[in-house]
């Protein structure tokens, strides 16, 4: 967003200031601060800071570079899926198939690497992109709700990864070097996370500097008005689905790099955490409001929390309860409710 320094803004500001009474000025300053916190994704960053602080108090070794490294590494795949989901949610839709698609693409990479070598990665990423476009096309042109389309394809990709892998784990022996570098840690820096970070920065600049980003938000806020403004809304929606599936493909590649193997359901469990990352980051589930960088922050928060429950010593059977409550509480802090209209 921009700082208010246009000439007209200054004039209006001065005019308003002249009327100000001291108390009101302070109230407004607080409100302006709150809205700024939401605008720049500061709220999820603060939440992350607080959680890390608490965990550091419980366990001094939490802040050791070793555990930070593995934590960031762990958040990479979740981050990729959350970024993709973030775009789809931004347009007011949902992609329920992205996690199983990551499992499926991982199986494909594992299958193809020995014969194709590094080319396998290109092939699989190309296929993911095509899959995303296909899902988007069905949604847009057959007018089937995205929830239904992706619920259906969730079944399709699950089945395909089961049959392709014959329901057993595939170990990658040949050409593992083509992907293993992703999880290297040169000078102790987890490369996997750095890659995700670079990708995030690229997508953030796309959202900010390309008209595509603004159109994405416009479609999420009000598709009719966006269409009447001359935006080809179906293309915008297609781009979100394509991006989501492409990022699933990349997540699949990452997963092979991390585990050196693939099984039919290796990433399936990440569907809900990825959605949680998106909303914890402050993207509104109804679309239009949110961002890219904050979604990555959301993914880190979710990862830290799951590690954190162990550090704090919550028994694993109780963790889902705390996890659920945690997500709800965090969302009340990070979602900008000033944009939500209510009557009373």
């Amino acid at each position: 967003m921009t700082t208010a320094n246009t000439p007209t803004a200054e004039n209006a500001g001065k005019a308003a200031h002249a009327h100000h009474k001291a108390g009101e000025g302070r109230v407004n300053a607080v409100k302006a601060l709150a809205s700024r916190l939401h605008q720049h994704g500061v709220a999820p960053a603060l939440v992350l800071g607080v959680i890390v602080g608490i965990l550091a108090l419980y366990d001094n070794s939490f802040l050791a570079s070793d555990s930070i490294q593995s934590l960031l590494e762990q958040s990479a795949i979740l981050g990729l899926l959350a970024l993709g989901q973030g775009f789809v949610v931004m347009t007011g839709r949902i992609d329920l198939s992205n996690a199983v698609l990551a499992s499926f693409t991982a199986v494909l990479v594992a299958k193809l690497l020995p014969s194709q070598g590094p080319l396998a990665i290109g092939l699989v990423l190309g296929l993911s992109l095509a899959i995303g476009l296909l899902q988007g096309l069905v949604h847009v042109f057959a007018q089937v709700p995205s929830f239904i389309v992706t619920l259906g394809t969730l079944g399709v990709w699950t089945g395909l990864s089961l049959t392709t892998s014959k329901a057993s784990t595939i170990l990658v022996m040949q050409h593992y070097g083509a992907v293993s570098w992703i999880y290297a840690r040169p000078y102790g820096i987890p490369l996997s996370f750095v890659l995700v970070l670079v990708l995030t920065l690229l997508l953030m600049s796309g959202m900010r500097w390309l008209r595509w980003g603004r159109r994405m938000r416009a479609v999420g806020l009000n598709e009719r008005a966006a269409a009447f403004s001359g935006i080809r809304t179906s293309r915008v929606v297609l781009s979100a689905f394509a991006l989501s599936a492409l990022l699933s493909g990349i997540a699949g590649v990452f997963q092979i790099a991390e585990l050196q193997s693939a099984s039919a359901d290796s990433s399936d469990a990440l569907l809900l955490p990825a959605i949680a990352s998106v909303v914890v980051g402050g993207t509104a589930i109804a679309g239009g409001v949110g961002g890219v960088g904050r979604t990555l922050l959301g993914a880190i928060i979710i990862t830290v929390a799951s590690v954190g429950f162990d550090i704090v010593g919550i028994p694993s059977s109780y963790q889902p309860i705390f996890y659920g409550l945690f997500v709800i509480v965090v969302i009340t802090v990070t979602v900008d409710r000033t944009r939500v209209t209510s009557v009373a």
Partner: peptide
């Protein structure tokens, strides 16, 4: 509902 995008800025 159709003309203005209330959640976007004036700019």
């Amino acid at each position: 509902t159709d003309g203005a995008l209330m959640g976007l800025t004036v700019e």
